[in-house]
Design a binder for these strands. Sequence first.
DNA 1: CATGAATGAGTATTCATTCAT
DNA 2: AATGAATGAATACTCATTCAT
Lengths: 211, 211, 211, 211
Amino acid sequence: MRKNSKESIVEAAVFLFNTQGFSGTSIRDIAAKAGVNPANIAYYFQNKKGLLEYCFTAYFENYLKEIEKGYALLDEGAEVALKQIVVNLLKYQCQDIQLTRFILREMTLDSQMVREVMSTYHVKERYYFKKVLERGMRKKEFRNHSVPYLILQIKSLLNTPFLNSHYVHEVLHILPHETYFVEKYSRDIYQWLDAILCEPKPYDNRRIVSV
Amino acid sequence: MRKNSKESIVEAAVFLFNTQGFSGTSIRDIAAKAGVNPANIAYYFQNKKGLLEYCFTAYFENYLKEIEKGYALLDEGAEVALKQIVVNLLKYQCQDIQLTRFILREMTLDSQMVREVMSTYHVKERYYFKKVLERGMRKKEFRNHSVPYLILQIKSLLNTPFLNSHYVHEVLHILPHETYFVEKYSRDIYQWLDAILCEPKPYDNRRIVSV
Amino acid sequence: MRKNSKESIVEAAVFLFNTQGFSGTSIRDIAAKAGVNPANIAYYFQNKKGLLEYCFTAYFENYLKEIEKGYALLDEGAEVALKQIVVNLLKYQCQDIQLTRFILREMTLDSQMVREVMSTYHVKERYYFKKVLERGMRKKEFRNHSVPYLILQIKSLLNTPFLNSHYVHEVLHILPHETYFVEKYSRDIYQWLDAILCEPKPYDNRRIVSV
Amino acid sequence: MRKNSKESIVEAAVFLFNTQGFSGTSIRDIAAKAGVNPANIAYYFQNKKGLLEYCFTAYFENYLKEIEKGYALLDEGAEVALKQIVVNLLKYQCQDIQLTRFILREMTLDSQMVREVMSTYHVKERYYFKKVLERGMRKKEFRNHSVPYLILQIKSLLNTPFLNSHYVHEVLHILPHETYFVEKYSRDIYQWLDAILCEPKPYDNRRIVSV
DNA sequence: CATGAATGAGTATTCATTCAT
DNA sequence: AATGAATGAATACTCATTCAT
């Protein structure tokens, strides 16, 4: 019926996974919303788990790329690289808030897949953050701090607006999907980095490309 | 036959909801783990949703109390109150990390219950935070800032270690359930508050009761 | 709680059996409506089937008595006896329309209990009707007719208003619980008996006691 | 795999509903008797209630048609039409005694569905009966009588043999499914109509088509 | 590519009943 | 006499999945 069955399935799945959770969503719900036959999902993704894996892989592959794009600037300074990573991830997660929220939520479970994702993507992510932070500290750009605790705090600030987008919208009246949000919120995180991490120096944030 | 059927049901439920999610956990799983008959769950909690509501209510009632205990110190200064709220919530969430993780995750869905919780507990929570922050700004204790964005960041830092306790443990090797964690992490948050929020002044954090 | 638990249980049971059927009614529904503990029903009636049997027995014992009261008039003539039986049964079934409807409906099933009731009460009932009809025919009071078909028609007319009391009320706007109904309806049945069964003779229906 | 799953489900359902009642019959019983998977019932009829509705609709749609076929003869006289309706309904109900008994029994409950059926089919049925009876009275074919009471009696005579087919068979030894029954019983009802309703005149019942 | 039919295993829930108190 | 706790079995229903077409 539809032009692009596969695409419309993913679209419907992300929407429903996002609002009801993975376990709370049935393949028939997805098929109904996508306007396709349930058996079609098995055809494209083997089974429900395959559809989940498809979403995870797509998300984290590109997620890592965004980190690597910032990490590539490490030679220009740890601060530059770190701030670029931050803004890249913010933007990336803004692109598809529904998918982001769903992935981040699912990552809080204790499943086989979560363990696999953590042992690959998250370990790589930690590697990049660690490299940047340690280099900053070694070069006296950054003050000394516990690296894991810094990563924890950076990730806290990066993920919460998306994971709790409903709360953020309804209670705080902040709209994370608007372009203004990235600008404002990245400035807040920069401020936190400047205050907590960076040695005081006359530095402006102009170098961070914001595209 | 069992001494405390009701209690053991809740215990098993929290554990399983935590690891598998609410929808991913069957009433039979819970009953099996608790060593009771599945029908007993209906007897005590009416249905699965009732068991969920029981957990939510218990959690948020006490959650609010912790905030209110800090808020009561407002006359001694906004900073004192805010830091007390922070450490209280950290400790409270540490008490039962499993329950906390499960509740925080479930709050990222778009269910009827989530809407209800947000419109009561979260709105009250925002009220207290707002009062403290605005009072701090009015009295020149705090610098001027966007209140919603401040709340967003405070909640980010407070929740993430628990929501992502698995990641925090496996990837960052931080153990949120150890007493050391609260000490270390609350100091990090205080540092952030001092740097971002508080007007520079010779102030020590000794006033914050850490019990 | 209640003064008379047993009585209030039966009352509630009859009401619910009547509206929802026996299988469609749960012991908890009954207990709730009667304001007693479900275990109490087992105490009084052993089990759900016992409660049913109690209703059946009470109903049919008195049902038969009403027939026998009419049958006792056989020496005064078959017509007198038959009409007395008719009016007695009409009145009896009017007394507790709810119970009557429920019993009559349940008698249309193929259960063990139904077979037992039929092989005792209904066989006796048929015996009395047959005796009266055959005597009427022998004495030339009645025209010759098929006895079973006559019984079938008499029972049709006697039971339908109660079995279908809802239809009778809502669609035909006849109210079988009003005293007027017995008067009017028994006259209709007499008219049918006179026309179909009785040999033409100057006879009035005054002899039939209407108490 | 089966040739006619849907048909065999309905067949099994009618048999079991007839003997045990709707509430007393489980979907598993039906599936077992029909030799299909229980989930198949949900596939075809959505749920148990859907299966019930299917039976009701099928029954009453055709039931009304039989009435209308007789009503179409009204121009040939009220008596002709009425007797044709009677014989049509008798035959129709004989066709599937099991379904008829089950439907008639279920109509004695106070459910939502019963109310709906009554407010559509039964109201239409009453309309046709009323039209025929009033026309007969107006044209002096019939004596004056209470229309609702006449309808009540006609329906009594028409339904009871089927509703109580078990009793009729076991106690009275009348076999309503044999062709002889319709002939004999319709003659009895005609006799009743002639005696009670029709003005005395030399009329024979030969006009009523008995096919 | 796509689908309607079908299924076995699983879901939450309700049931009548039991029993210690 | 009466009840709260507890249970095993049964309930209707939903699930992801398979497969012939």
